[in-house]
Design a protein around this nucleic acid. Structure first.
Lengths: 153, 153
DNA sequence: CTCGCTGCAAAGCTTTTGCACTAGA
DNA sequence: TCTAGTGCAAAAGCTTTGCAGCGAG
């Protein structure tokens, strides 16, 4: 996956939808793709601000929103507030460790069976990609006091 | 499940942990249990305010927090912000329809296999009860325009 | 009598929005 | 030129917190 090509292709999607390609958008898209699927809006803002401090986080949100409408970006909620963004071309689900914040990816087909069951038995069509599956990674499980009180959030 | 007995038992848990049983706490617990597993803090506040308008929502949050620390209550996030509260004695997962807001319950064992796999392959211990599984219920699926743009949020 | 609980108001966190200005195409 | 995009500041939505007074045990 050649990053520059991906950046260009993403910006092109924006343009062909009638959008404009601006410096901020270019930098945001670049940071998003460099982030490799696990970046929050705030991290993106921080990143682009290194080279251009005037880019406001509202612009980051608006750019991500535009890309999401076009179907090339998705966001995933990790908890109460925070969300991360990634390219839609790379479908996956997320495991989010409440202990250390680590994010791991899992293949969607892992849930295919459960998905079918819910669909069949409850008539419900899930969108499992939109929220991370939270829990504790191996090392945080070992550190964890015991069981009661499943930590914060 | 006799509600009054459940209310008493819940308050007793609070007392035996060194807490005090107050009017607001009693009313909040009663409303929580009457709510049958699907009430938000705001709904609880609204409910108790019918008989006691001076109970502040901060008190509702603090009471729920105290109960949660004691392990008798859990909360479940439905989306970006909202969370609902239910008794921990009734373990279940939730399906939350993005279209109409309807909440359905699913038995935890539905996910037992996936859970084991994630545990085995990723060393990750999930807490699937903490976020609802979102998607669309049968009737909202039929209403839905098509596929692109998976709605709000 | 003491310490936990309460009400109130203010703040926190992430995301959104209104507005006037700037700048792509 | 003309409209989309931008920066700024303010607001929104849910939850938490500081503080002083109140009341359960």
């Amino acid at each position: 996956m050649l990053d520059d090509a991906t950046v260009d292709r993403t910006l092109e999607t924006l343009r062909s939808a009638g959008g404009r390609i601006t410096k901020p958008r270019e930098q945001i898209v670049r940071a998003l793709i460099a982030g490799n699927g696990h970046v929050s809006a705030e991290e993106l803002a921080k990143q682009v601000n290194r080279s251009n401090p005037s880019i406001h986080i509202a612009t980051v949100y608006r750019t991500l929103d535009a890309l999401e409408r076009l179907g090339v970006v998705n966001h995933v909620h990790l908890g109460h507030g925070r969300a991360i963004y990634h390219l839609a071309s790379d479908p996956h689900y997320h495991l989010y460790c409440q202990g250390c914040g680590k994010i791991e990816e899992v293949p969607p087909d892992l849930f295919a069976e459960v998905d079918r069951t819910i669909n069949r038995e409850w008539g419900f069509e899930t969108v499992l990609s939109h929220f991370a599956f939270i829990g504790f990674c191996r090392s945080c499980r070992e550190d964890r006091p015991a069981d009661p009180a499943i930590a914060e959030d």
